[in-house]
Structure formats: structure tokens, C-alpha cells
């Protein structure tokens, strides 16, 4: 895959470049390439690398014009299924919108979890709140609209769907997504005192797994990049 004409580099002020790609997959591939080049020391100094749905913002660039000419010639390999770090997020499928989502999907409410768990997701980008990742990977037939009326308070740990995205709320905020479940220990999502503050950083692969029947108490680690929870493994049914 070479992007060629499907890549548009748009200037954003004097020191930033917004690189626009044709779709989410090319965006993930381009973002991965930017990170590879930064790790290899072949990317000019950049202060921020901020992926979006179809864009990657390169901010704090000395010469955006030169970088724009550079990226136009990059060979960008596609992302592969095992690219990026993998994390598992335990979920209890007990959200208040489970029945609505089941109706939209044309399945029974108790089947929603299995359908949701059957896919591997990737953090396309973050935003809205620190540690809030927009996860892609849900097939188009399972995309659901936002709720007509947003909630004034969505609890921390709510596992939610909207459009092409799945997400877990790192803390209680207002929100308009459809809530299908709960991550028992949402503190694992965002902890600025930790070396790695956000569990979900752009490019991370995510699998949702069944949470233990007993709710996880506070202080337990929950999901982390190092742990691989075995809970729910092998429940490949549905979808």
C-alpha cells in the first residue's frame, strides 16, 4: 500500500501539519509509520503526534512545508493484525442501553456481549477526556447512533458504543454514547501518577473479555499492558 495521491498535507498555522488520509485504516498505517520513523530518529523533531479519525496532526514542526513534501513520498505499509501492544479489558455486559443495542443489532440482549467481544479493536485516537480512547474494529453492520438525548452523567468504567467506535469512560462525565457494559476497575484506564498514564494509547490493540462474576475491588490491578487476563478466553461465539 502506497498512499500517493490519497494523502493530503494541510498546514495548520506556522508550525503544524494536518495529514489527511482516505480512511481509518490508512490513518492507522500512517500513524504507525510516523511512530516508526520517530523511533528510528528519521522524523524531524515534532512536539505532538495526534491521530484523529482520518488525520494525523504533527504539531511543533520546524518546517511544515519540508515535512509535507517528505511525507508525500513515504512508503507506508498497512497495519497488520499483530501490530501494536495488546491489552484486555474485562467487561460486565450490564449497561442500561443493552436492550436498545440488541434491538439495533437484531439479537437478544444476552448476545450483545459475545458479539462485542468477538472483535479485536484498535485505539484510533484519544480525546474528549484524558485516557478516553476511540476504538475502531466494530464491523459497519454493528455501528449504532448516539442516544438522541445525552446523559448528564455516565459513570466511570461505562463501556459504550457510538458510530464506528467503542470506548470505556475513564471517569464520570456527561455523554451521549450507548452504554452496554461496565469495566469493573476503571482506575486502570487513567492514572497520571503511573509511568504510563493512559492504558489506551493510539495504536494499542484491545480485546474485551468477560469480567469475573465478582466485581473487582478497588486497588486491584485490573487490565494493564503486562497482564493478560485469561477470563473469557475461548468464548468465540456469535457475530
Amino acid at each position: 500500500m502506497t498512499d500517493g495521491p490519497s494523502l493530503t498535507a494541510r498546514p495548520a498555522g506556522r508550525h503544524a501539519l494536518l495529514v489527511e488520509l482516505s480512511d481509518a485504516e490508512h490513518t492507522a498505517a500512517f500513524h504507525a509509520e510516523v511512530l516508526r520513523r520517530r523511533a528510528a530518529g528519521t522524523l524531524p523533531p515534532v512536539a505532538e503526534i495526534v491521530p484523529g479519525a482520518r488525520t494525523v496532526l504533527l504539531d511543533g514542526v520546524g518546517d511544515p512545508g519540508a515535512l509535507a513534501r517528505g511525507v508525500a513520498g513515504w512508503e507506508v505499509p498497512p497495519v497488520t493484525a499483530d501490530d501494536g501492544e495488546a491489552v484486555e479489558i474485562p467487561v460486565r455486559y450490564d449497561g442500561p442501553d443493552l436492550a436498545d443495542v440488541a434491538t439495533l443489532w437484531g439479537v437478544a440482549p444476552e448476545e450483545v456481549g459475545a458479539r462485542h467481544r468477538a472483535h479485536t479493536y484498535r485505539v484510533a485516537f484519544c480525546g474528549f477526556a484524558p485516557g478516553f480512547g476511540y476504538l475502531t474494529g466494530l464491523p459497519a453492520r454493528l455501528h449504532v447512533p448516539r442516544r438522541a438525548t445525552p446523559r448528564t452523567r455516565v459513570p466511570a468504567g461505562a463501556v459504550a458504543l457510538a458510530g464506528p467506535y467503542s470506548a470505556v469512560y475513564p471517569r464520570a462525565t456527561p455523554g451521549g454514547w450507548q452504554l452496554i457494559g461496565t469495566m469493573p476497575d476503571p482506575g486502570a484506564l487513567w492514572d497520571p501518577a503511573r509511568e504510563r498514564a493512559a492504558l489506551l494509547v493510539p495504536g494499542t490493540r484491545v480485546r474485551f473479555v468477560t469480567a469475573d462474576a465478582e466485581p473487582t475491588g478497588p486497588g486491584r490491578g485490573g487490565a494493564s499492558p503486562q497482564e493478560t487476563s485469561a477470563a473469557g478466553a475461548g468464548t468465540e461465539d456469535g457475530a
Binding site: F125, G127, P202
Partner: peptide, 9 residues
């Protein structure tokens, strides 16, 4: 705290 925009900060 620049440098954390990709985490939503």
C-alpha cells in the same frame, strides 16, 4: 504539559 495531546491531555 505539552507532549500529551495524543492522550487527550
Amino acid at each position: 504539559r505539552p507532549g500529551h495531546a495524543h492522550l487527550g491531555v
